[in-house]
């Protein structure tokens, strides 16, 4: 077995022995946080999470409690965001709704984009029977009426089984993206760097994870960002029709739907929930944009 000349290594080792390993994860993270946009988006999202989950712990009112001495009251020291017609505290229900919407929105987006990436790239990379089977499943789900199925399944979803709800929502969001991913994977598979990796002995699963998916990053990040809003809106629609998240539990979508009726003469019933939704989606978009730029080698980030 031959070795690279040692004296050359010794000479080199003298001045390169320091510094962290500049792997992709580190470089991308560095570039993400180097932009003001990325930091702002991340901070906003973190703040929303903090408020939604830690806020109710420090607040005297719970979302199930009703103050029978204050119906439809504007914001006051006792009720920070005012109260609803039922006497529910707006801050408490908004935070509870934000918890649900954040989890549902982000999880659905991550799960559906993840499924789309996995299915599309596996189908496009292996082709043959794998491809035909996976695309057949995608086609089947595309022709099924998603709303109807969710409505039929709603009794199952009742009783706080929100995780099942997330999965059901995600199940009907991934198909179109997976088809795009499949097409792009077929093109990437023919690139020489994929061949180079194959001839290096990298197993197929790792090639997909390391070479195919990152090269689809722009598409996937945009898709995930769009899916967050799509999921929150779908959840809202479902809740409006009496499926999805049911009272006494609340979601931002439900609150906005209710608040829109009283928005004109009691703006606090509407604007706090709507503002929460806008801030959340804005933060997700900022994070998505910065992440896409950070992943893109063409961007002039500080590496």
């Amino acid at each position: 077995m031959m070795t690279l000349p040692e004296e050359e290594f010794a000479e080199v080792a003298a001045d390169v022995g320091h510094g962290r390993v500049p792997s992709r994860t580190r470089v991308v993270a560095g570039r993400f946080f180097a932009t003001g946009q990325g930091r702002l988006g991340f901070a906003l999202l973190a703040l929303m999470f903090l408020l939604a989950f830690a806020g109710p712990l420090l607040y005297p009112w719970s979302y199930t409690e009703m103050d029978f001495s204050a119906f439809m009251q504007p914001p006051s020291p006792a009720h920070w965001f005012g109260t609803l017609q039922t006497g529910s505290d707006v801050f408490a229900v908004t935070m509870r709704g934000a918890q649900k919407s954040l989890i549902v929105g982000l999880l659905v987006a991550v799960v559906s984009t993840g499924v789309a990436a996995a299915v599309g790239s596996v189908a496009g990379y292996f082709l043959g029977w794998t491809d035909r089977t996976l695309m057949w499943v995608a086609d089947l789900l595309l022709v099924l009426p998603a709303f109807l199925i969710l409505a039929i399944m709603s009794p199952l979803l009742a009783g706080g089984r929100w995780l099942l709800f997330v999965i059901m929502l995600a199940l009907f969001l991934w198909m179109v993206t997976s088809k795009i991913v499949r097409g792009m994977t077929k093109a990437i598979k023919e690139r020489e760097y994929v061949k180079a990796a194959r001839f290096m002995g990298v197993p197929p699963a790792k090639i997909i994870y390391r070479h195919v998916i990152p090269n689809l990053a722009s598409l996937l990040v945009v898709d995930a960002t769009l899916n967050v809003s799509a999921a929150i809106l779908t959840e809202t629609t479902l809740s409006y029709f009496g499926f999805g998240i049911q009272p006494p539990d609340v979601s931002l979508g439900g609150l906005i739907a209710d608040g829109s009726r009283t928005a004109l003469y009691a703006p606090w019933t509407f604007w706090f929930a709507a503002g929460g939704l806008v801030v959340t989606i804005l933060a997700v978009n900022l994070v998505g944009d910065s992440l896409r730029d950070a992943l893109d080698p063409g961007g002039r980030g500080s590496a």
Binding site: S23, R24, E192, K195, A196, R210, P214, N215, A217, L295
Partner: peptide, 20 residues
């Protein structure tokens, strides 16, 4: 057994750092 391809831009993953 290693390989070097013709077009260096095509054979290096554009999304990976040189280190990776």
């Amino acid at each position: 057994l290693q390989v070097v391809f013709q077009d260096p831009l095509a054979s290096l993953d554009p999304r990976m750092t040189v280190h990776d």
